[in-house]
Computed example of a mutant assay.
Amino acid sequence: MKRPLVIAGDRAALLCIDLQEEHRQDRRLLAVGFDAVVANARRLQDAARLAAIPVHHFAYVVDAAVSLPHHPRLPDGRSAFSDKDDPLTAICPEVAPVDGEQLVVKSEASAFGTGLGDALKAEGVEWLLVCGVWTEACVDATVKAALKLGFRVVLVKDACGSGSVAMHQTGVLNLANRIYGGAVVDTAGACRLMAGETVPAWQPDRPVPIRYGYEDAATVYAWL
């Protein structure tokens, strides 16, 4: 259900997950509506910087020589996607780190495999606003890891994307069902939250409150 939400800006951080060029240039990894996702992520970054909320950037990059045994590889041994020598793993320039912000390279789905949790807790962070791609993969893994570590997560639904509209929407719905202690909002709402405003936000009030099917998933998603 939607309930009023306010967050403490001095205990918040913005996580930008894998906003890399491959998602708009590599045919195998195209994210639907990625330019809109990037534009919304930029709005979030601008709002965070204005409110002195830290912005953390992440990129998924694979070194096939040290990756998991069954990781997909090309005939020449390189990673089949996000290879360490592929220039398309670069962060899109519109949403790249600015002075004072770091880019953390990760080799697994969750951003929390990098020591992020300890660093955020040392900074007193309680709330995480999350955007990026792909919704049901790296975003999902990051959100679930954050919840397990005790953070409260605000998932910014229209600043995330995936390989299809259905994949994205069901990814958001699945997280919305289990984002206990957190919320789902859109970019406009997230910007208002970072500015200190109270915003109506989807927050689960019981276990798995959303049940959806093929016929109504898009409608339920739009309602969040």
Rank of each mutant, 00 (worst) to 15 (best):
M1A: 10
M1F: 09
K2F: 08
R3W: 10
R3T: 15
P4F: 14
I7P: 02
I7L: 06
A8S: 15
G9C: 06
R11H: 13
R11L: 02
A12W: 00
A12L: 04
A13I: 00
L15A: 08
L15Q: 10
L15Y: 12
C16G: 10
C16R: 10
I17K: 02
Q20F: 14
E21M: 12
H23Y: 15
H23R: 07
R27A: 15
A31V: 14
A31I: 14
F34R: 01
F34H: 09
V38E: 04
N40W: 11
A41I: 07
R42E: 15
A47R: 03
R49V: 02
R49S: 01
A51P: 01
A51Q: 07
A51W: 11
I53G: 05
H56V: 01
H57S: 01
F58I: 01
Y60L: 14
Y60A: 03
V62S: 03
A65M: 13
S67E: 15
P69I: 14
H70D: 15
H71E: 12
H71S: 06
P72V: 06
P75A: 02
R78G: 00
S79H: 11
F81S: 11
F81Y: 15
F81K: 07
F81N: 01
S82R: 12
D86S: 08
D86E: 03
P87V: 04
L88R: 15
L88Y: 08
A90F: 09
I91N: 00
C92M: 03
P93W: 07
V95Q: 04
P97G: 00
G100D: 05
G100F: 04
E101G: 00
Q102M: 12
L103W: 11
V104I: 12
V105I: 14
S110H: 09
S110F: 11
T114W: 08
L116E: 07
G117W: 05
D118I: 12
A122C: 04
A122K: 12
E123I: 00
G124K: 05
V125T: 15
W127T: 09
L128A: 08
L129G: 11
V130G: 07
V130Y: 05
G132C: 03
V133K: 08
T135D: 07
C138M: 06
V139F: 05
A141R: 03
A141G: 04
V143P: 10
V143K: 00
K144L: 07
A145P: 02
L147V: 12
K148D: 15
F151M: 04
V153K: 02
V154Q: 04
L155K: 05
L155F: 09
V156S: 05
A159F: 10
A159V: 00
C160Y: 09
S162A: 15
G163M: 12
V165T: 12
V165Q: 12
H168Q: 10
T170A: 05
N174G: 11
L175F: 03
A176I: 03
N177T: 13
A183N: 14
V185F: 09
V185N: 05
D186E: 10
A188N: 09
G189V: 07
C191S: 13
C191K: 08
C191N: 06
R192N: 08
A195P: 00
E197V: 05
E197K: 10
T198K: 14
V199E: 02
V199C: 00
P200W: 07
W202K: 04
Q203G: 13
P204I: 08
V208R: 09
I210F: 10
R211I: 13
Y212C: 01
A222K: 13
L224T: 04
